[in-house]
Write a protein that binds this DNA or RNA. Structure first.
Lengths: 238, 238
DNA sequence: CGAGCATTTGACACGTTTCAATCTCTGTGG
DNA sequence: CCACAGAGATTGAAACGTGTCAAATGCTCG
């Protein structure tokens, strides 16, 4: 826990930053504090009812959904600034939210957020846009799983991460920290661990990216972007 | 074109229906009329700038995204009541919106909708919830492409369609109309036409579903639901 | 009635998975 | 400070699901 308010964070958020003093002042009453979770802990479990909305303050989260046969698909890895609604309606969670690294989250009851939204619309717009961006990201993950091969989809996702992180200055030059395990990467990309390993190996050998020891390093952006067919437009926040 | 107003439609929408007379009255000023599109016509093209929001009044639409190599992935087939933002921010479209069957759409400029939203919050909530549901649907499509095999993902999608259609009384008993081509089904599921054909054949042979002549018929819901691991919870509107 | 698209079928190729074993870390307790 | 345990990474060989290519058939609409 710490005493930073949601208000402060909203103003720090690329979308929230566009609010004028007048517009943001009313949120002061939303004195939500951040809550910390240890790496690998579960924050909210698929199937359980949990009416909180989360905003990532720091760290890497993980939104995943399991199948009966034990397989799982990671829907997204929410990063700083991402809003996680788990659901927009009350009812059991559709997916599990957990922490990959140590994570700090702002948490608001869905109802309280909805009320705040009624009192002050720009907040609602911010939410709408955040969810819409999630939509774009999901769409691109669907493109990955549906129509790109292992090399291309891995490249695409690594570029996406870089772009999302650099919006917050979390990627410098051609390098960024990435606590993902190859197992997790596989569950994000819809591949097996073994194949992800081979794919990363090939990407490394062809001097495009290296994924090692918790860091990703882009070796040849040009080749990588071409292979992935990457266009960052879909990540634009405003 | 016809003269049904968006207001009338909002009230007919499962989410909009929960609005009280008082809440819905103010929308009357949004006198948007429906616009008709012929089957197979393109409504809004990937890469072009188009600041409209669409709500499907009737017919089957198609939201797709193309890759440089010519492959395409169909992101979703918006049906009656679905809201299509194409994007939540101004800028080039991320995907192409087209008509599969003849389609009738409500269209509102994004900005006008945003303003209306400022004046009347329930409208904004409706939008947020509609986008959030899109999120659930996308998530499930991602599960399909990432972690389900051809049989299971085909079964899952056909059950999803049935559920979405029956919310509007568009599926009766175990049968519904479906204008999708096997080619389109392939682009939705991330498979090839040939393989979809074989898969549908197997589903038919094992007496689970038949997909033929523009109609889908569920033969054994029990077997189908089990194969797909289908749980309609994610489609709940409210 | 023909043209063009959608469906169906077969044979084969290929990308990815599966299974299994080995290797390399990193953190922990002695 | 070393040794060990356990997780993660790496590698090889073989199996399998889905893709590719190509041709035939069946529809539907002008």
């Amino acid at each position: 826990m710490n005493d930073q308010t949601l208000l402060q964070f909203i103003k720090a958020h690329p979308i929230g930053a566009s609010l004028t003093r007048d517009e943001s002042e009313p949120y002061a009453f939303l004195k939500i504090v951040a809550k910390d979770y240890k790496a690998h802990s579960v924050i909210s479990r698929q199937g359980e009812v949990d009416n909180r909305i989360f905003i990532v303050q720091s760290g890497w989260a993980c939104l995943q959904r399991g199948l009966q046969n034990g397989d799982r698909q990671i829907i997204d890895t929410p990063l700083r600034g991402d809003v996680i609604g788990v659901r927009a309606v009350d009812g059991p969670n559709i997916s599990t939210l957990s922490a990959i690294s140590d994570v700090s989250m702002f948490e608001v009851p869905r109802r309280a957020f909805a009320s705040a939204t009624l009192l002050h619309r720009p907040l609602g717009n911010m939410l709408t846009r955040a969810i819409a961006r999630q939509n774009s990201i999901l769409t691109e993950h669907l493109m990955n799983a549906g129509r790109r091969n292992a090399m291309s989809r891995t490249a695409h996702f690594l570029l996406e991460l870089e772009e999302r992180l650099s919006a917050y200055g979390l990627a410098s030059g051609n390098r960024y920290e990435c606590p993902l395990t190859q197992q997790e990467l596989a569950d994000i990309l819809g591949l097996t661990t073994v194949h992800v390993n081979r794919t990363l190996g090939e990407l490394r050998k062809s001097d495009m990216v290296s994924f090692k020891a918790g860091f990703v390093e882009v070796l040849s952006r040009k080749k990588l972007v071409a292979l992935a067919g990457f266009d960052k437009e879909y990540l634009r926040l405003m």
